[in-house]
Write a protein that binds this DNA or RNA. Structure first.
Length: 410
RNA sequence: CGGGGUGUAGCUCAGUUGGCUAGAGCGCGUGGUUUGGGACCAUGAGGCCGAAGGUUCAAGUCCUUUCACCCCGACCA
């Protein structure tokens, strides 16, 4: 893409209404637009990153048998009354609205109810199980206080995967697969080294749930972590009893702030039972379907990557999620521009994902500053200086040094 | 939701005890000089001072109400 065509611009000034590093850099770089508190739009650069994260997620979830669908955001009140979660006293972060007729409806903050109801049409027998279904959908949560840029929003994207199995053995089996898929996802998007499987409250039906916590000073959660054992415990369940249960000792754990980028938990019959999602086993006995839920917030992952990978100049994207793989910067002018254009065309033809800074009348310093801010991992500079040697200069965003290589080798 | 703070140009901000036609930097337009780390000169456009009401000869400035945004806390399958 030619940068001269990109409608977004970078900014030098820090937005006055943002403190968090992720929002500051993403807004300055033209990745996102703040519509209001906790509500952000994705601009072309941001959407590219978001889509790359989503594609990695899809890739890993498809491997373990996930089938993607797309549920609705408008939710039927009746369904929610069956599980007792319509009441504002039970769930206080509902966004509710109504039809012209006065019929109330909700804007989904999660989709267990909707999906379990839907699956009643498709699951009748043990032969229909197991099933693994997911979507990447907007969720609405009426947070009392949105904060931390795109880390805690009122409207946000979530990948939510649900497992439907006949018994707990199958649930446990899939749960472990999902856990591994999550490990792979966070590794692939670049935050694997700082992301830890964390024991957290299991709610009503399970002893524990597992969170994926990325260690980062801007995190809202407190975890106790053993890097050696590659395990962590959320502060909310940090008790002597739990530590004994997990075979951990206090002196081997370090306290750290972390961002919850994923959460998996076993819901068992919590939703299937009240909603009547059942199946007949081999003997014709009717039993409730066993459920599990597995969530990742792609937008939060995006924000977390920025929190983890930035310096004073801007973002440093991991290659796997960078908006472009290469930032081709032309410092050429006049006739030389044609040479730079040729390089761009050549890279595009070769299938390289390249942002081409072809802007004229913008000085070199500004282009470099923009490039540092946007944070594309590889930079190729073409200028009169390099063209004299029939070469280009290559520099990595996270390295100081650069090298000249011949155009024929490029 | 409790506490604290902030709303003035697209962005970041200044604006004194109320007093002339509301300012600066960045960004943007035009002309020119520059051209490997946000360069410079000249010139120009851009404002119902968050909104509503009030006090006053006079309100960006004082009062009331309200909305929005930020921070701390509470909350957060």
């Amino acid at each position: 893409m030619r940068q001269s065509h990109l409608f977004t611009k970078t900014r030098k000034d820090i937005p006055s209404d943002e403190i968090s590093k992720n929002a500051e850099l993403l807004i300055r770089g033209g990745f996102i637009h703040k519509e209001m508190a906790g509500v952000y739009a994705y601009l072309p650069l941001g959407l590219r990153v978001l889509n790359k994260i989503n594609d990695i997620i899809r890739d890993e979830i498809n491997v373990i048998g996930g089938q993607e669908l797309f549920l609705t955001t408008l939710q039927n009140k009746d369904t929610w009354e069956k599980t007792g979660r319509w009441d504002d006293n039970v769930v206080d972060n509902w966004f509710k609205t109504q039809l012209k007729s006065g019929t109330e409806m909700g804007l989904g903050f999660t989709h267990e109810e909707a999906l379990a109801s839907l699956m009643k049409n498709h699951i009748n027998s043990y032969k229909d199980l197991p099933r693994f279904v997911y979507q990447i959908q907007t969720k609405f949560r009426n947070e009392a206080r949105a904060k931390s840029g795109i880390l805690r929003c009122r409207e946000f994207l979530m990948k939510d995967l649900y497992s439907f199995t006949r018994d707990e053995k199958d649930l446990d089996e899939f749960y472990e697969k999902a856990k591994q898929a999550y490990v792979n996802i966070f590794k692939r998007v670049g935050i694997g080294d700082e992301t830890f499987i964390t024991f957290a409250s299991g709610g009503t039906f399970s002893k524990y749930s597992h969170e994926f916590q990325t260690v980062c000073d801007s995190g809202e959660d407190i975890i106790f972590l053993s890097r050696e054992k590659n395990i962590a415990v959320n502060k909310e369940v940090y008790t002597d009893e739990v530590l004994a249960d997990l075979g951990l000792k206090k002196n081997e754990l370090e306290e750290a702030k972390a961002i919850e980028v994923g959460n998996i938990f076993k819901q068992k019959t919590k939703f299937s039972e009240p909603l009547g999602l059942t199946y007949a086993d081999e003997d014709g006995n009717v039993k409730p379907v066993i459920m599990g839920a597995y969530g990742i917030g792609p937008g939060r992952v995006l924000g977390t990557i920025v929190e983890v990978y930035h310096d004073e100049k801007g973002i440093i994207w991991p290659e796997s999620v960078a908006p472009f793989h290469v930032h081709l910067i032309s410092l050429c002018k006049g006739e030389e521009m044609k040479k730079a254009d040729e390089l761009y065309d050549m890279l595009v033809k070769k299938g390289v994902d390249v942002l081409y800074d072809d802007r004229e009348g913008v000085n070199a310093g500004s282009k470099f500053a923009d490039s540092d801010l946007i944070g594309i991992p590889k930079r190729i500079i073409v200028s009169q200086k390099t063209l004299e040697k029939n070469s280009v200069e290559i520099k990595h965003r996270n390295e100081e040094k650069s090298e000249l290589i011949g155009i024929d080798q490029l």
